[in-house]
Amino acid sequence: MEDAAQNNNGPELVESDTTPDPEFYILRLYVAGQTKKSLTAFANLKEICEEHLGGRYRIEVVDLLENPQLARGDQILAVPTLVRRLPPPIKKIIGDLSNTERVLVGLDLLPVGEANVQK
């Protein structure tokens, strides 16, 4: 399990070395099969990223049904779970990401106060 996690870390580290941009986002979406919830989450995430991150992001989708050992390695209980792996610190957002404001808050893209103002 440790190995699997490291394998996943491998290419990212290289990537983050070549792109030292602190504004670059690596997001990983954990799902369990092609369920309605996971499809909704992915669609929502894509939309939010396009709108707020331009091209400064990469989304990895991990299907736990295919890689069940990652549930333990990455401490995933709920699905879908979105993990912001970069920039640090690691952030977790669970659910189908239907509440855009909360996702933005969770990704540190929007301060809590500003979210309220926008509303």
Binding site: K37, P68, A78, V79, I94, D96, S98
Partner: peptide, 21 residues
């Protein structure tokens, strides 16, 4: 404190994890 919740989810991750164990 590390987890933000938004929308529908389930605990399939826990099931998968336990099942694998």
């Amino acid at each position: 404190s590390e987890i933000e919740e938004t929308g529908e989810y389930d605990l399939e991750g826990l099931f998968i994890r336990l099942g694998l164990a």
